[in-house]
């Protein structure tokens, strides 16, 4: 019984992934977490030290929110993509060189993927060969 359900779940997961900019949201979330982790490892848990420490947490949280937004509402991908693109540049100067450049690269690619994703349009006539 469970073996009959698993392919359906896998198919559902694949449909869910294809129906939204999955990679964009994933990279944005990972980039945000990386920014936070660099600050966390360098400063100790929950030590908001200086502007860079606070900015890392704030920007990281915003990236995670942007990633979740692209997953939950792909129609807002342009908003979250542009927001993440601008914030990725801000992170370079405000948050430990964009999480030692890795966080910047993840969020920059993620925002570009969000802006480049196109939902497949339905054909004009519903009858297909």
């Amino acid at each position: 019984m469970s073996t009959a359900i698993r392919p359906g779940r896998r198919c559902g997961l694949q449909e869910w992934r294809r129906s939204r900019p999955f990679a964009a949201g994933l990279l944005l979330g990972l980039g945000g977490l990386e920014l936070i982790c660099v600050s966390w490892v360098g400063l100790g848990f929950l030590r908001f030290t200086g502007t860079a420490g606070a900015a890392s947490w704030a920007l990281g949280a915003l990236f995670v929110v942007a990633g979740v937004t692209t997953w939950r509402n792909p129609a807002l991908r342009y908003f979250s993509g542009v927001l993440a693109a601008v914030l990725s540049l801000v992170s370079l100067v405000a948050a430990n060189l964009g999480g030692l450049l890795l966080g910047f690269l993840l969020t920059a690619v993620g925002s570009a993927l969000a802006l480049a994703w196109i939902p497949q349009q339905a054909p004009a006539t519903p009858q297909e060969a």
């Binding site: 294809r18 509402n73 693109a85 993927l113 196109i118």
Partner: peptide
């Protein structure tokens, strides 16, 4: 259902390489 306010989309999507390069 509110994931897709544009009802013409079929649910799937693709990534345009040209747009990706233009954004990155």
């Amino acid at each position: 259902d509110d994931d897709f306010p544009v009802m013409t989309s079929t649910g799937a999507g693709r990534t345009s390489r040209r747009r990706f390069a233009l954004a990155l």
